[in-house]
Structure formats: structure tokens, C-alpha cells
Amino acid sequence: MKSLIDLKSVFKYYKMGESIVKAVDGIDIKINQGDFVAIMGPSGSGKSTTMNLVGSLDLATKGDIYLDGKNIEHLEESDLAQIRGKKIGFIFQQFNLIPNLTAKENIMLPMLFQGVDEFDREIRAEELLKLVKLEDRKDHYPNQLSGGQQQRVAIARALANNPDVILADEPTGNLDTATGEMVMSFLEELNKKGKTIIMVTHDPNLAKEHARTIYWMKDGKVSKTTFGKKYSKNKKIPISKRRR
């Protein structure tokens, strides 16, 4: 099986005053294409740092991270930006929509940075709005949308450039249970269509319920790897071959 993301003995140390914080202290993770991964752990365990490294938002102190066979640790910021824009879709706990832009404009934004022309951007945005069932909210600004609606816009935005990987940082953290479930079902839906999902959460139930592979982190290290409820019974992990 082809591994899409490969972390090889990755370290991330921060200097905090006199002391050194070992946020990520030597981890090796292989994530296969089409997997639904949850990175679990209490706060300070290094799970967010790991996600930032995978998402190339941050560079490791030591170690190599391969994305689709390419070592992203030795790239220039502008190349990283291109890779992020093309291959990775981000979903944040705080939604992080641009407040000055409407739902549709927010979805069009990642395509702008990839040089997609306006006509194609509009078509794609309309398509994605339909997918997240927000066609009637396309001209609303983020502050006119509920939390759940904002997170759906964020999902649509993450999908704009049709990335291989969706990185979701506590995607339900700011939502009530029902809306959270809806967002999770969207992610599962995407996973079935072949997207690799990497979700960071501190909620063990959420991880067990939806993810296939769960990495438990503690003190910057992966303490154990388990499988989610739906997959734990049969060790042979079925991964959909259908992409997109």
C-alpha cells in the first residue's frame, strides 16, 4: 500500500526562555492514502504540533516528512505554500473563515492562490456549496452563519483545490453534539470518496467512533496505535479505492 504521508523520526523542540520544550520527541508515522486517522492526546501531548508539521505550517527541528514521496522539510516557504494549497485542505476548530468575504468568496480563495481563473472558481465554489448543502447561504458573511454552517463552509473551502489530505484540528470542538455529528458525517463521506483525513482531537469517543487508525500521543511520543470501532473487529483494513 502506498503511504501518502511518512514521518521519519521527527523532532520538534521549542525554546521557551531557558528551558527547551520537547513538543514532538521522535515520532514515526506512516499514513496511507484513503485512511481516516485520528491523532489523540491530552493538551500538551504534541498532537497539534504534529499536525502543523504534517500540514507544513511548521518545520521540524530534526527528521524528515514525506508528502506524496516528496520531502517537505527542505522546501522554500513559497513551494510549501503551493503544496499546502494544492494537496492539503485545512479545517480548524475556530473555522477561520475570512470575515470580509462571503461564504462563496471564502471557498473561492484557495483557488485564487493556485491561479484558477474566476469563471472556474465560481463554478467549483457553487458545486462545493451544493455538496455542503449551503447553496442558499452563498452570499452570507461568516458572522451571518451559525457555527455548523461556518464549519461546512470551511470544509467546502478545504476541498476547493481537490486536495489528497484533509487536516482537521478539533473540527467539532466549537460545535454542539448534533452539529458536530453532521460535520463528522461529512468527513466520513469524504473519506469514502477517497480523501485521506487526519483529525486531531482530545475526545477519545469521537476518535473511536469515526477514525480507522488512532495514534495516541503522550509527551511528544506515540504511546500506542489502535483502530476505530468500525474497523477493530477485522484486522484487514478495507480502504476504498474510489478516489474523489
Binding site: 505550517l57 516557504e77 485545512f90 477561520n96 493556485q114
Partner: peptide, 10 residues
């Protein structure tokens, strides 16, 4: 930070 995350170059 957000627009950089979604692919904006420097």
C-alpha cells in the same frame, strides 16, 4: 495565517 494555510505565498 489562514490564507497562508490555504496556499497563499509570501
Amino acid at each position: 495565517g489562514v490564507i497562508k494555510a490555504i496556499g497563499a505565498k509570501n
